[in-house]
Design a protein around this nucleic acid. Sequence first.
DNA 1: TGCCAGGCCCTCTTTAGGGCCTT
Length: 208
Amino acid sequence: MSMADSIIIFDFETTGLSPDMGDRIIEIGAVRIEKGHIVDQFQALMNPGSRISSFIEDYTGITNAMLRDADSCSNVMYRFADFISNSNMVAHNASFDKRFLDSELQNIGRSYSGEITCSLLASRRLLPSAPDYKLGTLVKFLCIENSGSFHRALYDAEMTAKVWVAMLSTVREHYSLANIPFSLIQKINKTPKKSVSKLLARMGNISL
DNA sequence: TGCCAGGCCCTCTTTAGGGCCTT
């Protein structure tokens, strides 16, 4: 199994929207998928060092009481840096999670060598008939079994992984592609939306 | 103390504005 076949899908719950404004991660959830199956997972709460707002308590179900006893950000981030190692990664609206990942890893002097791509950008290009591109909507749109427990990190990472696998499977069938490597999604995400179907048809050698 | 994001994408665009998506 080469690393190219292994991808980590991750999600963070945070104290707010911007690490530049002092927001921190409070929960990490991640799964590793190989050949379309989840083979490993990572979940941890982490104590951001200050109280979280009632909005975040309500939004995530993570309470100040739960975080009081949680491990420190630095301890959890060390373990997560080991988990992601040199893997390629996916997140839903990855620019959001990447800012937090980079910020927290910088705090502990760690880094990563894999690349990160975005399931939100990919789904806008590959599922043009979806009603919208919220994670929960894509789960329903792709008929993925779910309990509705969104906004916890591991659950959202699992759902993102299942959206990722189902979306790629749908596109593979539609365009008669043998496989869709991570690098092709990176290329698709840099391609203007209106040019994506031509790109895929050319790769699948079929006429539109 | 109180302030509070940022990148993508569309369009009535590019000398801009606003909705979407993430917490």
